[in-house]
Write a protein that binds this DNA or RNA. Structure first.
Lengths: 222, 222
DNA sequence: TAGATTGTTAATCGATTAACAATC
DNA sequence: TAGATTGTTAATCGATTAACAATC
């Protein structure tokens, strides 16, 4: 069956295409060509066609793509065409902001449970969900059967939480804690760390500033 | 001067090394070798040495690296060795969670102002900062001189906010809104979109699950 | 039909990995 | 000195870009 591995950058872009298509769809656009997608997303037309080519044929030469058809097919590829259960660990500021995100339903994700280790929070509500004791996580997920977990706890707790999620049957984890997590083969972890993003921006800012200096002071030693 | 461009993945990893070094430093570790870093971060020893090599020499053959020295030097590379002003736009759940992040000072960033367009929020406090009218942003940043901006508003507002930030003198933007932003040359934008991350995980989850099926049903047609 | 645009192949580019001489 | 580990060069790998035959 030699499954050709799909590059992760391609998967990330698929999600971007989906967003652009949704926006075009709302505007009433029915057909697009790859250069429209480039205009909308900044991703090159060639890259767009190449990305799609991993999954089959989607358009008509000379014509382009049907917006709603393409949307549905990409959703299917990413398995966003059916509701998926997500468990959230961490009911602090970040967890609260995540739980409040209005787009969960639209993107076909459903937060089925929230856990925390803070006794003063357990039993209270985070929006419409009761905050449960993190020690109940493994047991509770026997019912939920969630395969997707989100870690929104301090870095010091993140590995413990990851272990619990994995024991509880979670297969993929989105980790917001600034920590490198260990996990067995077959478990996928993606890290979101805005401080790291800012560090990159900090470097790029200094680079831009030095470029400007070089323009301002053209002569000098090269 | 032919500045050799540093790969962005290298910059991202530098930040990861920094985190590992901080953790080792706290544990009282004074020396590390590249394979220690691999054990700590999952990034290969060769990759670590290659990444550092863009910026000079950091270690001693046969010995390794001084933890605190390496920390300081990477911080300097990323310009994390001096305080940097950041303006935040969006005082909703996400903006609030960002403002509450306890690590700002430690990472040498300082949120100097928060803006929103919601009349019922303007004038109120978000933690210790007064929420200002986003229409004051350009003017207000003449004082702050922040070069770093964070967008934590709904997607529909994101481009407008980006434009304001840029007019206000911001050079690099961390965008949390699920939108592709346009910006002139010389402005750097990085997008953080957890829904996109979940979409990737959703695909990888289905991939993992099909692998397991294939193991469970070994014979079949290949 | 002529013009437009796809899907795919080949060429290019860039990043990661491996190997090793230099050196502590 | 012998063993360990660096910094760097060369080899490999993978992703992006360009080009174009197929086709609507």
């Amino acid at each position: 069956m030699t499954r050709k591995e799909i590059p992760v950058p391609t998967l990330e872009r698929l999600s971007t295409y989906l967003r652009a298509l949704a926006s075009l769809d709302i505007q009433g656009v029915e057909m697009v060509c790859s250069s429209n997608i480039e205009a909308e997303t900044g991703i090159s037309a060639a890259q767009f066609r190449k990305d799609l080519s991993y999954f089959g044929e989607f358009g008509k030469p000379g014509i382009g793509y049907y917006v709603s058809d393409l949307q549905k097919r990409i959703e299917k590829i990413l398995k966003l065409d059916r509701e998926q259960s997500v468990v959230l660990v961490g009911a602090g500021n970040l967890g609260s902001a995540l739980a409040a995100f209005p787009g969960w339903k639209q993107h076909r994700f459903s937060i089925v449970a929230v856990f925390d280790n803070n006794v003063s929070k357990i039993g209270r509500k985070l929006w419409d969900l009761e905050i449960q004791d993190v020690r109940e996580l493994v047991h509770a997920n026997r019912d939920y059967q969630a395969k997707i977990g989100i870690i929104a706890v301090p870095a010091t707790e993140a590995q413990n939480v990851a272990n619990l999620l994995i024991v509880g049957g979670v297969k993929v984890i989105l980790n917001f804690a600034p920590a490198t997590l260990r996990a067995p083969q077959g478990i996928v972890i993606r890290n979101v760390c805005f401080i790291q993003e800012l560090a990159v921006l900090s470097y790029l800012l200094s680079e831009e500033e030095s470029k400007i200096e070089n323009v301002a002071l053209p002569s000098g030693n090269k």
